[in-house]
């Protein structure tokens, strides 16, 4: 089963495998969310709010709907 970044547990380290096409594909790219990067959840805002990720050492915040577009895989498959 394909996991997305939205389903990651806090602190769980994984790698971006693929980013699904969406109207903001270009926004993912330009902020540096690319396949192959390590990704980890730092904090989740309550009641389904945004998720703060650490992506290759850089912190960024995404809503769940955006995080669901990011497919992840374990760090050493």
């Amino acid at each position: 089963m394909v996991r997305t970044a939205a389903s990651l547990q806090r602190g769980e380290q994984s790698v971006i495998a693929h980013i699904e096409d969406s109207p903001y594909s270009i926004n993912f790219l330009e902020i540096g969310l690319l396949p192959g990067k390590q990704i980890r959840v730092i904090q989740r805002a309550p009641f389904g709010g945004p998720i703060a990720f650490l992506v290759d050492g850089h912190m960024m915040a995404l809503r769940i709907s955006e995080a669901e577009l990011i497919q992840v895989q374990p760090i050493n498959p």
Binding site: P23, Y24, N27, F28, I31, L33, P50, A52, H58, M59, M60, A61, L62, R63, S65, E66
Partner: peptide
Amino acid sequence: EKSYLLTDLPI
């Protein structure tokens, strides 16, 4: 337009 949030959290 769909709303989205994709923002940098600077150090």
